[in-house]
Structure formats: C-alpha cells, structure tokens
Design a protein around this nucleic acid. Structure first.
Length: 787
DNA sequence: CTGATTGAATGTACTTTGACGCAC
DNA sequence: GGTGCGTCTTTGTACATTCAATCA
C-alpha cells in the first residue's frame, strides 16, 4: 500500500547484527519492552521479562526482527581469546526459557543468580553487575539501530511524491527564487545571503502554516534512564506513511513532525535538505544500579529545550551545510565551532545527550554528522559513544554503511574536509578527566613506560590542577614513540639495525620467575628500541638444490609473521604437513608460529605447519592430500565396521526376540507406524551422507530417541542398553533396508531376514571391506601401519 | 556546581620451547 | 631399546582503565 524500505534493507541490518536469520519474513515490526519485577535487589529470585510486543504495530510486512534477541546473541567479548572455553560457565546459573504466545509476544525470563555479594560486608555500591553492563551495552546498540532505522523510514516518507506535490504549492515564485539564488561572481556571499533569507521566509511560512497542537505525551525520542527502560513503556500507536502524510499536510502534531514536514517543504521545491536526527539511546556508560533518588525531576522546558530532529540545507556557494531548527529553537545557523543545538547544562543533558547525530539526505544517504554539533567531540562526546571500543566502532560503521544507500558525492568530500578542520580546531580540554585517553593530547604523567617523546618535542599546553597550585605539561600524541624490546621486535619479524642504541632502559621485574629460579635481588634491565631502530628480518635462504633450511636450537624455524619465511621457501599449514614431509624424505623445518602459555611459567611452541623450499612445496602438498585421503578412507572404514557391528548386535537381538516369541508367545507391539515415520524422518536428514548400499550411520551419541524406535519391544530395549552405538537407515536404499520390515513384520518373517543379513554381516562383509581397503592403501602407497 | 581524588571492579599485557608412561 | 603418542594440567601477576562516590 505504501512505498516502503526494501526487505534487503532489513536483511542487511540483521546481517550486521549477526542475528540468527529467521525464515518468518512476514512478521510485523516489533516493539520491545522490558520490565523488571520491582525490588530486584531484595527479591531472592528476581526476574527480568523482555517482551517484544507486536500487537500494536502497523501492517508493514517487511519490518521485523527481534532486536533484543540479536543484541544478546552477538557476543563481542570473546573474539580475542583463543583458549576461550566453548562451554563457558559464564552463564551457568542463568536459564532462559523462551515461550511464544499466541499474539507473537516473546518472553525471555532470566532467573538471576541467587547468591548475593552482600556477605563481604563492604558498603553496597550503586553499581550494576558485569552481566548487566553487557546487557546495557547490547540494549544501547539495539535501541540505537531502531532509532536509526526509524529515521531512515521517516526520511523516505518525506520523499512521498503526493506530499511534495501538495507542499510545493505553499511556496510562491519569489520565495522559490530566493531558495535558488543565482551565483554572484563578485560577491558569492550575496548568494548565500539570499539563500539564508529564503530559508528564513520558509521557516516563518511553516510556523504560520503549522500549529504545534500537542506537547509530547511522554519522553518520546528523548533519552530514558535504565529504570525507565526497564519499566513499562507506553507506546502510542505506530504511524503509517499515509497517516504521516495526512498529518503533515493538515499541519497537526508535535515539534518533531513539524520539523519533518519542514524538510518535506524544502525538498518539495528542490532544495537539498537533510533530515537530522539526534539519536538518544540509553547511556551505556551509566552503570548505576539505581538512579539516585535525589536527582530532582527536571522541568519540562529543561528536558525538551533542545530538539531531536532538525534540518540541514546544502549551501553550494560556501560549500557548507546550513542548520535550521524551524520549530524548537527557531534558528538558522552556519555552524563554525559551536552549535546552538548542542544541549548545555546538566538538566538538558539528562534527557538529550548528544552522541549520535545522523543526517538523512534526499537521496537516502545516511551520515554521522555528530562532529558538526558536538564542540567537544574528541574529549567528551567520544567516550559516550559505542564507537569508543574497536568492536563497537566496527559495528557502528556497518550499521551506517547498511543505511547509506547512495554513492559518494563531492558534497561528502567537502563535509569530510570540514569535519577534519573541526577536529583540528577542537582545543585542549581544561580538565584531567577529558585528557585521559584523549586521541590528540596526553599528559606527561600518562606517558607509558614503553613510550618516549620524540627528541626535542615540546609540550603543547599546560593544565592547571588544584586551583592553579600545580601545573601539568600536556604533549601532542603525535610526538610519542612506542618502544619495544629486541625480543618483542623479533616477535614481529624485525631485528635491530647495526649500531642502534636503546631509547630507554627500564627495570624489568620478574618477581615470580625470580623466586622460582632462586635468583633474587636486583631487577633485570630491559633495553627498548623504536621501530626506526629496527629493520625487517630476512631469514637465511634454503640451500639449493636440496632445500636445507637453517633451524634454531630446538630444530624449528620461527615464523611469527609471514615475512619471517625465507624468501625461497613457503609455509605449508596443515596438521599433516610434518608427516608428509617425512614421508617424502625432503628437507623441512617445523614452523613455530607462536607460543601457548600454560600454568606456571611454562610455554609450548605452537607448530603451525612446516617450511619447505618452494620447489618442494608442490610435492609436499600432494603428499598431504594423499594422507588426508587415506585418513578419510580409514575413517570411512571404521564407520563401516561400526555399522556392521551394530547390525550384528541388532540382528542378534531380533533373533533372541523371535526365539522368545516362539517359546513364550507373542507380545503386542504398539506404535510401529509412528516409529516408522520417525525413522524415515531421521534418515531424510542424513541424506547428504553418501553411504554404500545398505549403509547405516552410527549415531555419535547413541542413547538418543532415534535409536529406540528401531526396536520397539521392551525385551529388546533392555538389550539395547548394552551397546553404545545406534544407527539410522539411509533413505536411498529402500531395497536393502530391513528396518521397515522389522518394524512391521511378524516373527517368522524376521527370522528369514535375520539369517540372510546376519551371515552377511558376520562373515563376508568384514573381510571384504578390509581387503579392498588395504588394496586401496597399497595402491596409493600410503599405509599408516608401520608394521 | 565542577572537577580532583579515592577506591573497587574489571580488563589487559606480559610470559616466549616438558615430562612421563606406555605400546609397539 | 628406541620411538611415537597420549596424558597430565586447567592457572598468575602487575598494572591500567573505568566508574561512582566523595571531597574541596
């Protein structure tokens, strides 16, 4: 019914967020709501309910996705650690039963850990748990992405042709000419002046046309704290595009809608206007468990003084964007170093913390333009953004890229230039906090032990501390040099240049090692060098033609980085590489790619393959292929053997069963039909395994239900417990599949089959496979058995 | 009110080449 | 008697960073 965002749009975002892809593409846009049962600190079993409510969403079919899910699913924390345990007990006490109710709501109930840390006796700090921090981080991300998508959708609606057609009638020819001034060659400023004049007139026109009927019903787009997030959120009915257009044309609604309408008005007369949105997700750097009770309720005007939405117009004469807030502050400005739209004062920042200002342009571009509006972007704003961490930054870039749907233009170049200039112009912070980890400045005392200032570099400023009683020197970070020890440089494939001198000598304290070795007392000295004191390490070449490689004392070659491989050699990374090289009896060296650290001070080299001369590499690779193939065959053989054994056991059981039946009479079987279905289902899943005719796959964990149906009788089930393997029927070979018969059959029939199959399994089959396998191995010349 | 200091919790850099017993 | 393979173990310390609370 309306022009909507394409499904790819959302798929992209989902991909970005590493969401578990869901097939049900038809689910409507979901709203999320999160409730905490009151007294979560006192309740011995506090519960958190996340409910994603779809009941009041509109009918736009392609909007969907469980953002809560995807937020929790993406785990950014463990990527760096190699030894990260898969079955980590991080969440061992947390259970998450997930239930879908009829309305499509999703409930995730997280039972929090029972034990409390109050026994320690320490004063209870108003700080949330580590898990809660993580949750807030994810929630922040999910919230942010929702807001950005919202902005993108509204921005598309603004381009609605019907809306633009009707709005364009409001602009008369004079005004239109003002908005599109001629280029004044003598005084370009005059053109800009005209444009500004036109924009002002537009603004006045719009203010006259538009009656801001309603104040905000709640917090709307303004920032909520974590208690408000967790508490019930009263979401109004969702807007649809037709309703949006109707309201804009009518001139009804709140400030936000008025601004959006204003952007539409400008676009209707072909002005390059941007919809700007300052996204206000909850603050993830706020770790307070509870918002302090004394924080007074800020007045309405404090909270909503600064706008969430505003407008930008491209001025082609000055090559800058002009900022217009037509409804809230009713101002037009050309932002140089500070913007009037940046919230000032504690009260205003409580609800409007400028962190993510996104500009959506008429060609569906999406850019982060926070730099224009945040005057202290580097020192203050930066820390509150998810981009402060590398992983968060990567994530954010992906989201922006996914929402940015146009090619780069010259305007982007000009804007980037402007942002760079703003970065340059941002002054030095005047307090300690903001200088900590500042991207451009560093305090003298924060220079690390392995860093040194460039010779002759001078401080670029001073900071007064303690009301001027102390003065600290501040340096430019560009004057810093990172230093490393010779060994550390070697780990990066670099060695010291001849005659280089240490930039710094530090005392190395190796307390534990020292106490272990019995040497104590004076600390060892460590000489540190800069990268300029080093050069790339070139390993000695392998000898020609035999390819002999120089090895270290341990008989290995160190390949910490690719450049450490001798120039006429190559690294073959395969677990079977050593075996292959040995088999071929060629010169090789085991490659140490790193170390694994274990308890105490012991460390083990990680052998990442072998280094061989280039002219021998192909042979080694072929040998590896062969070995892998033979191993595969070996594995196949094992599987076959196992299958045959299992068959044997099964048939034995059936024989016993039929004997029992014959001796003591028959027992009613039940559920055979259902069982048969199960078997067929199970076999269908395994259809991608290619097994020889009559093949049965041993099920790795044999005590699963899949095994049980094959032998339904209770007598046989007892026997079943003796064996460890199970099997399922391969779907392709119905001819030789006896299970069907067994399940359906009466005792007499099964005996016949028993005899046929039993003998085959017991006698011929084993030897046959064995024989053929060995033949095969001999042909290949890769026999593993060293008899 | 602002910003320095303090204290607690969390995060990260650093470390840089077995020993033994058993089966074949 | 030599070789190869599996098993043992499952963890540390020091310092940096970050926040809320408190103090000046």
């Amino acid at each position: 019914m309306e022009t909507n965002l394409s499904p790819e749009h959302f798929q992209l975002i989902r991909k970005v967020l590493r969401e578990n892809p869901r097939k049900d593409q038809d689910r409507p846009l979901k709203r999320k709501r999160r409730k905490v049962h009151e007294n979560s600190t006192k309740d011995p079993e506090p519960k958190v309910t996340i409910s994603i409510d779809s009941s009041d969403s509109d009918s736009r079919a392609e909007n969907k996705s469980e953002f809560v899910d995807l937020g929790l699913a993406s785990d950014a924390g463990d990527e760096g650690s190699e030894d990260y345990d898969e079955d980590s007990d991080e969440f061992e006490d947390v259970t998450e039963p997930v239930t879908f109710d009829a309305l499509g709501d999703l409930q995730v109930t997280i039972a929090a850990k029972q034990e409390t840390k109050k026994e320690s006796g320490a004063k209870a700090r108003n700080i949330c748990s580590n898990e809660e921090r993580q949750r807030r981080r994810y929630y922040h991300m999910a919230y942010l992405v929702c807001l950005m998508i919202h902005g993108a959708i509204i921005n598309e609606w603004i381009n609605n042709p019907k809306l633009l057609r009707k709005l364009s009638k409001l602009i008369d020819e004079n005004l239109f000419n003002l908005l599109h001034p001629e280029k004044d060659d003598q005084l370009p400023l005059r053109s800009t002046r005209k444009l500004l004049d036109g924009l002002k007139k537009c603004m006045e026109l719009w203010q006259k046309h538009w009656k801001v009927k309603k104040k905000y019903a709640g917090l709307e787009y303004y920032m909520r704290n974590w208690q408000e997030i967790d508490g019930p959120i009263d979401l109004k009915k969702t807007l649809t595009q037709s309703e949006f257009v109707r309201r804009v044309l009518k001139g009804h609604g709140n400030c936000d809608l008025a601004t959006q309408g204003f952007v539409a008005l400008l676009r209707s007369c072909n002005v390059n206007a941007r919809l700007v949105m300052s996204c206000q997700p909850p603050d993830f750097t706020n770790l307070k468990e509870q918002e302090s009770a004394v924080s007074r309720e800020y007045t309405y005007s404090d909270s909503f003084k600064y706008p969430i939405f505003w407008c930008e117009v491209w001025d082609k004469f000055t090559k800058k964007w002009i900022t217009i807030d037509p409804t809230n502050l009713k101002t037009i400005e050309q932002v140089r170093n500070a913007s009037k739209l940046e919230p000032r004062g504690v009260a205003a920042c409580k609800r409007n913390m400028m962190r993510y200002v996104i500009g959506f342009d008429r060609k569906n571009g999406c850019k982060d333009i926070t730099r224009r509006y945040a005057s202290w972007f580097n020192s203050k704003c930066r820390k509150r953004r998810i981009t402060s961490s590398a992983a968060g930054s990567e994530w954010y870039d992906k989201v922006i890229t996914a929402l940015h749907r146009r090619k780069r233009t010259r305007i982007d170049d000009y804007e980037e230039e402007y942002f760079n200039q703003r970065d340059e112009d941002e002054g030095m912070p005047d307090n300690l906090q903001d200088l900590k980890n500042h991207p451009k400045f560093i305090l003298e005392k924060d220079i690390r032990i392995n860093q040194v200032l460039k010779p002759n570099s001078k401080e670029c400023g001073y900071l007064n501390v303690n009301h001027g009683r102390q003065v600290l020197k501040v340096f430019d970070r560009r004057d810093l040099i990172d230093l490393k020890s010779a060994k550390q440089w070697y780990m990066e494939g670099r060695i010291l240049k001849v005659g280089s001198r240490a930039r710094k000598t530090i005392k190395k304290s190796k307390g534990r090692l020292r106490s272990m070795t019995g040497i104590d007392g004076e600390a060892e000295e460590e000489r540190l060098y800069s990268i300029d004191d080093t050069e790339l390490y070139h390993a000695p070449l392998a000898s020609i033609p035999d390819g002999k490689i120089e090895k270290n004392a341990y008989g290995n070659i160190e390949v910490f980085v690719p450049s450490m491989i001798p120039a006429n050699c190559c690294l073959i990374e395969s677990p079977n590489a050593i075996k292959a090289a040995k088999l071929l009896d060629v010169e090789y060296a085991r490659a140490v790619c790193g170390f694994k650290f274990e308890k105490g001070n012991s460390s083990k080299p990680i052998i990442g393959g072998v280094v061989v001369a280039k002219w021998l590499a192909e042979a080694v690779i072929c040998a590896i292929d062969g070995i892998e193939y033979s191993l595969e065959l070996d594995e196949r053989k094992k599987q076959e053997l196992k299958a045959l054994e299992d068959w044997n056991v099964l048939l034995l059981k059936i024989r016993i069963k039929s004997n029992l039946n014959a001796t003591y009479g028959q027992i009613q079987e039940h559920g055979t039909e259902a069982n048969e279905d199960n078997i067929n289902d199970a076999s269908a899943d395994d259809s991608d395994f290619e097994m020889p005719a009559g093949g049965f796959l041993p099920v790795p964990n044999a005590d699963t239900e899949a095994v049980q149906p094959t032998v339904a009788d209770s007598d046989v089930q007892e026997l079943e417990s003796q064996k460890e393997g199970g099997f399922v029927v391969a779907s392709t070979n119905s001819k030789s599949s006896p299970t069907r018969n067994i399940c359906a059959t009466e005792s007499q029939k099964s005996v016949d089959i028993d005899e046929k199959l039993g003998t085959a399994a017991a006698s011929g089959a084993d030897e046959e496979t064995d024989g053929s396998y060995e033949q095969f191995m001999e042909e290949l010349g890769f026999s593993d058995q060293d008899d």
